[in-house]
Design a protein around this nucleic acid. Structure first.
Lengths: 129, 129
DNA sequence: ATTTTAATTGACGTTGACGTAAAAGTCAAC
DNA sequence: GTTGACTTTTACGTCAACGTCAATTAAAAT
């Protein structure tokens, strides 16, 4: 299996190494270490970082993202655990759905604004321009 | 015409008056004043606040939102101004589109995760449960 | 072998987005 | 006409999410 160094990930996702270490401080990432103490990231850790950054783009706090990532990490042996996980997942999914709805609304508003401006621009060109 | 007080808006949108004043400090809102200095908000200002809060929900910074709001405020006399506004609007709209795309991706990933968990839950119930 | 580049921890600094407290003025109600 | 709710400005506080040294160690390149 192949591992990523911290700067591999930093370059790939265009974040600082400090940021990646900070996410570890906050318990969002847990890379393994070489004998000398350097961090090595598996594909799974990489996937987690990807999810963190995606979450951030939508204004989720690191605490919220932490909860989401728990879906990756928890050992979901046991039925109870699994049920809890699924229920939490459904809730979060609903939140995401609401955000999409909200964004579509924003888009519609902006489009209305834009088409109004464009109309005015046309009028301008027809009459005086 | 009817005006809103600062606490009207604070209650309606569930933000603090401090927050509303802060948005004014940052140039995002510009209420008129009574003779004694109290703030009064028009429907337009209210709409701007709504837009600010919507923007915030998607992780836009106040600076970014400020630029968006300029679409409301700028005096768009003159063709040049109008053209610039429309062009900027198109760019921002594209960004919003990308965010929607991104969110749909997140949704898909979460759904995949969830259905995997649900499958496991079913297996659990069939076999041992 | 040694220079260059990259990694580590630790600690302090910064920025954005407000919260909070204080002092003073204003408005509606009683 | 005074109580009480609300408003104003000024100013300092706070918390998250990093940035930025600094000192040290390890790895890669020449």
């Amino acid at each position: 299996m192949h591992y990523f160094t911290i700067s591999d990930l930093a370059h790939e996702f265009d974040v600082s190494t400090r940021t990646i270490r900070y996410y570890e401080e906050r318990g969002l990432l847990s890379p393994i270490r070489t004998e000398s103490g350097q961090r090595l990231y598996t594909k799974k850790e990489r996937a987690k970082l990807k999810l963190i950054l995606r979450g951030k783009r939508f204004g989720f706090s690191l605490d919220e993202i932490h909860e989401m990532i728990a879906l990756f990490d928890e050992d979901r042996t046991g039925k109870k655990q699994l049920e809890k996980t699924v229920e939490y997942g459904r809730r979060k999914l609903k939140e995401v759905d609401e955000r999409i709805e909200d964004l579509l609304q924003l888009k519609a508003e902006m489009e209305a604004l834009l088409s109004d401006f464009e109309k005015r621009l046309c009028e301008w060109e027809e009459s005086g321009g």
